[in-house]
Simulated assay, not measured.
Amino acid sequence: MRRLLFLNGIKAFEAAARTGSFAGAGAELNVSAAAVSRMVHLLEDRLGVGLFERKANRLAMTPAGRAYQSGLTPIFDALASLTAQVTASSGVRVLTIGVGPTFAMRWLIPRLADFRKHAPDIDVRITTGGAAAPFGDDWSCGIKLGDGEWPGLVAEPLFAADLVPVCAPRLAQQLKRPGDLRGPSLLRVAHSPGDWPSWLKASGVARITARGPEFQFYGQALQAAVDGLGIAMGIRPYIDDDIAAGRLVAPFALTVPKGMQWYLVYRSFQTEQRDFAAFRRWIMRSAAGPTVRDKGRKKIAEM
């Protein structure tokens, strides 16, 4: 016989552990922070185990609390997903993908028509957020740049995030060696200030400092490069389509690892869901396609 102790207390504890505070849990559960605290205290009494260490300005989980939360969160996630499936219209199959705006615009959206050919009955919904955006409760999966370590989530590598300068073909004709680069022409991305220094150091021209216009996102810098404003630091897969189409070229052979990779990120129970399984098969196959950097260099040679 299944023995479940005090479900309200378990739900209160899981929310407090995940949000890091009784106030955050209360906002999520529509109760007061004091009510959450009481329910967690009752749960601890019934379990006979302390789950939190109450400190002046924060909550700290005990080892037992960490172990309990690591098991509870996937269970609640799976329950929410199952409930959504059961209550959804029988004719609608929804796949929600969390992805950054530049990845969405420069790689995913241009390829969604191909996915629709393989799975025309799946309603794809894209929700965007930056690299630091938390994994959403309603996401089927996410595509993230990082080190592959997201607690509680499965992360499968998609692309290596190698850095290589790119520019418009006409500008590339003036670049024979890295020493031809000039600081004011090097376009920058605000959230990745280390890209140019890393590549310039590896190329032996660390004395050059990027001082060109600064943009918030890679996509903006790459569009500026297409328009001839300067040389952007390209990162795969953002540059694949522009290089394949000849809008951008990579004038130098040197590529430098960014130190991170792109991953397909999801909760383990999603592997049992056919819509996610179909998307996973498709994106793994699409990501395994050949790189296009050599095509870009070949275009320069043919000019």
Results as ranks from 00 to 15, higher is better:
V31N: 02
A33E: 01
A34Y: 09
A35C: 12
A35Y: 11
V36M: 00
S37D: 08
R38Q: 11
R38N: 09
M39H: 10
M39T: 01
M39W: 08
V40T: 00
H41N: 06
L42E: 14
L42Y: 07
L43R: 00
L43S: 00
L43A: 03
E44S: 02
D45Q: 12
L47S: 04
G48F: 10
V49D: 02
L51Y: 01
L51H: 02
L51V: 01
F52D: 01
E53H: 12
R54H: 09
R58M: 03
L59V: 06
L59G: 01
A60I: 11
M61P: 00
T62C: 04
T62H: 03
G65L: 03
G65D: 01
G65Q: 01
R66C: 11
A67K: 10
A67V: 08
Y68K: 02
Q69E: 10
Q69W: 06
Q69S: 10
G71K: 05
P74N: 08
I75E: 13
F76L: 09
F76E: 03
A78L: 10
A78T: 06
L82G: 14
L82W: 15
L82P: 05
L82E: 15
T83H: 15
T83C: 09
A84M: 15
A84W: 13
V86M: 10
T87I: 12
S89T: 13
S90D: 13
G91E: 14
G91K: 09
R93D: 08
L95M: 10
L95W: 07
T96A: 13
I97A: 05
I97F: 04
G98R: 04
G100C: 04
P101G: 05
T102P: 04
M105S: 15
W107P: 00
L108G: 09
I109R: 15
I109L: 15
P110K: 03
A113L: 11
A113I: 10
D114R: 15
D114W: 12
D114P: 04
D114E: 15
K117Q: 14
H118Q: 14
H118L: 13
H118Y: 11
I122R: 02
D123G: 05
R125Q: 12
R125Y: 05
I126R: 09
T127K: 14
T128E: 14
T128R: 14
A133N: 09
F135A: 06
F135C: 05
G136C: 04
D137G: 11
D137W: 08
D138A: 14
C141N: 05
G142I: 05
I143Q: 00
I143E: 00
K144S: 06
L145Q: 06
G146L: 05
D147S: 07
D147R: 04
G148A: 01
E149I: 15
V154C: 06
V154L: 04
A155V: 04
A155N: 08
P157G: 00
